[in-house]
């Protein structure tokens, strides 16, 4: 069966346009929030932090970027698929000649692209507030794309699973946000007291933040391949779950 490229593009464009229709909530709000973190923790308090020669503002940039990437990728993709379910417009997607590949590239691709646009704006804004550089820009870009795609996939699953607006918020607010804050966004894991370092290692977001920080600073708490492997594994698990959802029709064709 042939790939429906036009259908994919139609979904992708529609999703991107929907996001830009709500530009304040989609773009400005996360940019302002991240900028405030940078101003308060980076510019105002950064001088008082001792990280062995690393500027604190530069240290938290990848962590804050990860925080935004995770929350925005997840919420955009979950909202993108949940809204048609909520309004009933999902009928069109289900009756159209589009399969798993077209749907994922359309919905998840749009959510990931929006996250990438957001990441670029945040990095540009951060450059105005704190002094930072990117040690491995190509790897940083690749890693950001991987994280955006992975968590957009997770968001897509949440959007399919959710049967109410409250459920849409549960995982981003009650799981991802705390894990990211406790995942080394604002501090190195090595700074934690003995046993807490081992507790932190159970938190999967630690490896994500660590990986992105490595691409920025050239050093981090864990080897880059461990972070990269964990993220890639997560992406593959999400794709497998979505494939199963489409195959069985769970929450779609019940």
């Amino acid at each position: 069966m042939t790939f429906n490229a036009r259908g994919t593009y139609a979904i992708f464009k529609n999703e991107l346009m929907r996001m830009f229709r709500t530009i304040f909530g989609s773009i400005l709000s996360p940019v302002i929030t991240t900028s405030l973190y940078l101003v308060v923790f980076g510019a105002a308090m950064g001088d008082r932090m001792d990280l062995g020669g690393v500027n604190y503002g530069a240290f938290i940039v990848p962590g804050l970027l990860m925080l935004t990437l995770l929350s925005e990728s997840t919420s955009n993709a979950s909202f993108g698929i949940y809204m048609p379910k909520f309004t009933g417009a999902i009928y069109e997607l289900l009756s159209a000649p589009v399969g798993v590949a077209e749907t994922l590239i359309g919905f998840v691709g749009a959510a990931a692209v929006k996250s990438l646009i957001l990441a670029a704006i945040i990095l540009g804004t951060a450059a105005l507030i704190v002094d930072y550089s990117i040690a491995h820009p190509i790897l940083a870009l690749g890693y950001i794309v991987l994280v955006a795609a992975s968590f957009s996939l997770l968001g897509f699953i949440i959007g399919l699973w959710a049967d109410g607006f409250e459920k849409l918020q549960i995982i981003p607010l009650l799981v991802l946000m705390p894990l990211t804050f406790l995942g080394g966004t604002f501090y190195p894991i090595s700074a934690l007291e003995g046993p807490w370092q081992y507790v932190a290692m159970v938190n999967p977001v630690v490896y994500l933040v660590s990986g992105l920080r490595w691409t920025f600073l050239g050093e981090s708490d864990f080897p880059i391949m461990l972070s990269f492997g964990a993220t890639l594994g997560f992406l593959l698990i999400c794709i497998a779950v979505i494939g199963w959802i489409f195959k069985t029709g769970w929450r779609l064709r019940e």
Binding site: A10, E92, A96
Partner: peptide, 11 residues
């Protein structure tokens, strides 16, 4: 836009 979207989605 919605009508264009439908046309595109059906290939």
């Amino acid at each position: 836009r919605q009508v264009r979207y439908s046309r595109g989605m059906f290939g």
